[in-house]
Design a protein around this nucleic acid. Sequence first.
RNA 1: UGGGCCGUCGCCAAGAGGUUAAGGCAUCGGGUUUUGAUCCCGACAUCGUAGGUUCGAUUCCUACCGGCCCAGCCA
Length: 547
Amino acid sequence: MDKPINKNFITNIIDNDNTTNKFSGRVHTRFPPEPNGYLHIGHAKSICLNFEIAQLYNGKCNLRFDDTNPEKENIEYIESIKDDIEWLGYKWDSLHFASDYFKNLYEYAIKLINDGYAYIDSSTPDEIKQQRGTLTEPGINSKDRDRSIKDNLQIFEAMKNGEYKDGEYVLRLKIDMASPNINMRDPVIYRIKKYKHHRTGNDWCIYPMYDFTHCISDAMENITHSLCTLEFEDHRVLYDWIIDKIDHDNHPQQIEFSRLSLEHNLMSKRKLNELIEKNYVLGWDDPRMPTISGMRRRGYTSNSIKDFCNRIGITKKNSSIEMGVLENTIREELNISSKRIMGVLEPIKIVITNYPENENENIIVVNNPNNLNDGERSISISREIYIDKNDFMEFPEKKYYRLSPNKEVRLRHAFNITCNKIIKDEKGEITKLECTYDPISRDMSKGNKVKGMIHWVDVNNCVNATVNIYDRLFNDSNPLTLENFNKNSLIIKNNAKLEYNINLNDPNSRYQFERVGYFFQDKNSSSDNIIYNKIVSLKDSWGKNKS
RNA sequence: UGGGCCGUCGCCAAGAGGUUAAGGCAUCGGGUUUUGAUCCCGACAUCGUAGGUUCGAUUCCUACCGGCCCAGCCA
């Protein structure tokens, strides 16, 4: 997707800012993740927005880790986030950590104390909660609200020096306990937390909170447009209040847009982590996960993810995107870019009784009928082949036009066969089919016209593989808990037979297994355990009508 | 019930006083095609409701209705 980002209400705001010269024509965004989990497709929406906007306006986009809560954050997450952004194909203009600003933040806090805009509170968390009031009732002032500036300064410094225990004191802004906006009721901006930080070690035992940190970090980085999700709308007045009170000359504009939600998925780092902890999935990069790393492992391309983000748009409306939009995006790309091969997921053996033994023939076929530049390959067929179990029905339902007893069907790229005999084991399971082929039908124009065409693989010229078939993570379109987990979200086909032309040494190539779907080699695939993951099915208007 | 937002086709989403109310996904027809795929053609909304302003409103105003967010020393 090299086309530019679609215009949206945010680009409209920027266009307007540019005409009024609000930021002298500058556009500088940032993507500010907290390193407390892996990035998911919802983050991709934000990443694309921020980076694409910077690109569109010849501006800049920073990557800044919002690492103000050492208890939840770690280096593994930082590395994975950088890795995912790079994989998406974006380059940040500069890399920052909120923790780099701890000193500045501390100094700004002192300024606010000096100016009478912040005070030290010794209230307990419970007292603070009580005094905050409710949605409909105003809060009441803390007993410490009028502590002297001198005392505030002295205690704040002692807090920093580690002289108090966790929770003993906090620094709060002095705004308005009666504000209808609860965020303005003297928010806590510093807490004591004697916890080793992944970057600053034990340098600090007080840590600034989001509301105080984020706006100042934006201002310091010269950000112009601070894009965030809807739940921060109520925080914008506080954001503006702080920038005004510290009197910073760069006052970024916070603009909120709605989060992405994808049907049949969860988009909460906490719950995704729970899926891992409770062994519903194998890890952050499990191909079923809506994480960037999971989708990458499954076989989604970075372009398809960017294209998807562009298609869904940016608004302030809460919305939920159907899986079909995502699936169609990757299908559209892969239809053009991926070579076709044949692959049988659940094999049934067919013996073509009138085909000579110990012989085989090679057939030249195009790699991608929708992209002839992909060239041709040679496939092999002989007396014994495999076809997929669901391409045969002993008692065919109406309009089933694949293989069934005494019916003729065409083998893709080869010739027509007719099923003459079903061979079953003692349990009644079909083990083999005996068919005859019509030599004349090698020439399509000469054989019988048949409606059905199925894929197959030569028994003597194929590779064994395990194929993972994925389905939606949750059955419910809007899962709220893990209870609705789809137990069939992973079905392992461990006896698949793939056409020998598949290039096992090229882990980056994606294939269409004809009539089935698009597949990608799993990262754990090896020469003695070949594993492919289904990225997405082909559309199937027949199967769909049945279920 | 305080405050902040949102409401255009099944799902997204343009449009901002006069438009045939874009486009994508989905769906339904039909045509190519021996991948039930792709591709191509066609069908598919009067804009949450009710009033008002106006020659004229999805676009402005008012009131309702419906939905989301906020009472962490999380972000």
